[in-house]
Design a protein around this nucleic acid. Structure first.
Lengths: 140, 140
DNA sequence: CTGCATCCTTTGGGATACTG
DNA sequence: CAGTATCCCAAAGGATGCAG
């Protein structure tokens, strides 16, 4: 390969989109991983896409979404806190007796939804289940 | 919330795409994470999208893509091996003196490219850099 | 109900050195 | 060049129990 100026830190245009990336320093794929790289973050965005959910409801959604074992509150709490801190979610606490907290996507979080759409479109063909059925990969 | 049959394991249609997901058991977002959840896997798909690359070249691409520190061969080897085992990549070894191995996207790997496109489209706005600039998050 | 505190296990990632 | 072998460390994830 002679020139690969579009691969790395100072790509010009190209890649898959034809967009100008000259002002971007960090590869979006790496950034994406850092931001939603947690085990549940992507799925949290997924279940939150059509409205606010409560702490416990998010947890139960994860179980139903394919995890066998329930998410422990500590983990869920941390994921939610991370995402809130990064501005992906907003947290609203209602001052009622059985405590009630709702999490909602912020515009920053909603900006990720097109990616989610594409993931679901990909998954609708069964691609992920096919891949994970390859030999094992189902471990854990 | 009264009924949330579209969230979890047996979603009917909806979500973001309007596609029928009734036959899908595992949430695509979770599957996606399991498949390309490694730190470099997504980026590897990214740099491979327009043609085969050699082992060392992939490593260097990762550095240029935003990682500060080079990827150690052990990690890169494992990532590549994982992805090859899952059928995302194919590995071609040339019987020449300075050993030469090329990795190429398979159709299974290419099926992920629309997702990559969407990630790059998202990143082209600087979204990931904005988010990661929030307070810290740049740790490591 | 929504978390936090503590402790522990597993995994992922990294450094270094070495081989075909 | 393309890995493998060892050893190690940090982080992610989990179990349990408790508190506002």
């Amino acid at each position: 390969m002679e020139h690969d100026e579009e691969i790395g830190s100072g790509p010009a245009v190209s890649l898959l989109t034809g967009l100008d990336m000259s002002h971007i320093r960090l590869c979006p794929a790496i950034g994406f991983n850092r931001i939603v790289g947690g085990r549940y973050k992507l799925h949290i965005l997924c279940v939150l896409h059509r409205g606010p959910l409560r702490f416990g409801e998010i947890g139960r959604s994860l179980v139903k979404g394919g995890l066998g074992n329930p998410v422990t509150p500590r983990i869920l709490s941390r994921e939610l806190k991370d995402m809130t801190r990064l501005g992906l979610l907003s947290r609203k606490e209602y001052p009622v007796v059985p405590k009630k907290v709702e999490y909602t996507l912020t515009p920053r979080g909603e900006a990720l939804l097109p990616i989610l759409s594409e993931i679901i479109r990909w998954g609708a063909t069964g691609a992920h289940e096919d891949i994970l059925a390859t030999t094992n990969a189902s471990a854990e």
